[in-house]
Amino acid sequence: MATDAALVLRSSRSRVFWLALVLAVLVALCAGSVAIGTRSVSWSEIWAALAGRVDTVGQAAVAARIPRTLMALLAGAALGLSGAIMQGITRNPLADPGILGVNMGASLAIAVGVAWFGITTANAYIWVAILGAGFTAVFVYVIGSLGRGGATPLKLALAGVATSVAFASLVIAVVLTRGDIAGGIRQWQVGGVGGATFARLSVVLPFLVAGFLISMATARKLNSLALGDELAAGLGERVALARAMAALGAILLCGATTAICGPIGFVGLIVPHLCRLLFGVDHRWLLPFSALVGAALLTCADIAGRLIARPNELDVGIVTAFIGAPFFIWIVRRQKVREL
């Protein structure tokens, strides 16, 4: 018993250490995200812009990077958290809002809304995206769990990829009919945080906060679900309700993010795996850490996207796919064939 107590103490100490480290990295990345960009700016310009002046081009560039950085933080946190929840609900190591097609579903819903129903306000975008994300999540899950063996990682991943490809085709089909919006076709297929403004941030924030709160409230339920449905039910957990609630949180988060940024994949895949390695499997810790590490990862990917394609910018969705896909392959290789 004494060793158990020591173990708990040590692990909670190491968690505090990691928490401090992640926060420090996050602060450094925020500073980097404001200072580094396609355009090189001097320190004085950065200070002036932070003080609210936009007199020179450099100051204006820095001023535009501030909401962008905040957007990257929020989007990364939302995607990391929703990935952790999806992996928890499905008990599937390959779950991610991008791989399961949920982000592309949200993107298709917005494209349809814009092209056919003339939605224009950011608020409407978000509701439509959440609707699309929810519908797609249910659709993919149902398809992936048909037949023997329930929702195995392979079936879910394939169902998600197939749905993603189908929806990507439909997005093109919908958007190409409208010459006025077709020019921005990339933004419907590859997500980025480049267009962030404070106005958009303030619209999406309430949805994200609601998603965060719901998600955090389900941490204990996800711990029970991790034991398997029967054991969880035996412990007095209402399994279906727990799943539905957690899913609602995850869908709010990734739907709202996709509405503002477009579909960004693989953040929700990588982050929970990393966090599980570092902080253990307890969802009460895993969820907040996933949000923090997700924010760090997306901010870092966004900075990288500005540097590697100079003088152009690479959308952050391209960068995350490039980092995330090898990670995906690594997870696939680690799994036993039987489980796949």
């Binding site: 392979l154 994949g265 693989f266 995906f328």
Partner: peptide, 14 residues
């Protein structure tokens, strides 16, 4: 087969 397909999906995304 299953692993090959999943690895392929990852490579394809990249």
């Amino acid at each position: 087969g299953a692993r090959l397909i999943l690895v392929g999906i990852g490579v394809s995304a990249m």
